[in-house]
């Protein structure tokens, strides 16, 4: 399914505080047989450190896509989203809001902060796999993204 021309893995940053959800995402990625490298951080502060390659994240490659939960400890997903989209270097990275909330306000606010898409986590695991697959297909097969050299 992985169709990028060079054979490097897709770098995914998952910002998620619930270990259950982290594991589910890992399992879903495994089942979808995507060639990927998943980095997981559990709160908004860590997420920003990681993206700015601070401290222990110095060697973590810049992600190709960010899967971002909204309700996070320390710095919540909305703040992380706003910060990334205001950062000249980071704002090109597609951000998928992946959250349990189907709250209208959350959806509006996220798009208002320039989220690239908003996905409500499905109850059904089969559905979740389909979504992970779809997100991957859309961002790495259909959409043309700027090259990393900028």
């Amino acid at each position: 399914m992985h169709t990028t021309t060079n054979a490097r893995p897709v770098e995914i940053l998952l910002v998620e505080d619930n270990p259950g959800d982290v594991r589910l995402t890992e399992e879903a990625l495994k089942e979808s047989k995507l060639y990927n490298n998943l980095t997981v951080v559990a709160d908004g502060v860590e997420a920003m450190s990681c993206l700015r390659k601070e401290g222990k994240y110095a060697d973590v490659p810049r992600p190709d896509i960010i899967l971002l939960d909204l309700n996070l400890p320390k710095k919540d997903g909305r703040e992380v989203l706003a910060e990334i989209k205001n950062d000249e270097k980071l704002k090109f990275i597609p951000i998928v809001i992946l959250t349990t909330s189907s709250n209208e306000e959350d959806i509006l606010k996220s798009y208002g902060l320039h989220a690239n898409c908003y996905v409500t986590k499905p109850v059904d695991f089969d559905e979740f796999i389909k979504i992970v697959q779809a997100v991957h297909n859309f961002w790495f097969s259909i959409v043309k993204l700027p090259s990393e050299s900028e």
Binding site: T100, N103, F125
Partner: peptide, 24 residues
């Protein structure tokens, strides 16, 4: 209402997702 829409659904999703995963 917000708790119901978000916080209550998260554990529920864990239950369904992992039973499904177990089944798979």
């Amino acid at each position: 209402a917000y708790v119901a829409s978000h916080d209550l659904q998260e554990p529920l999703r864990m239950i369904t997702s992992y039973t499904k995963l177990l089944e798979r």
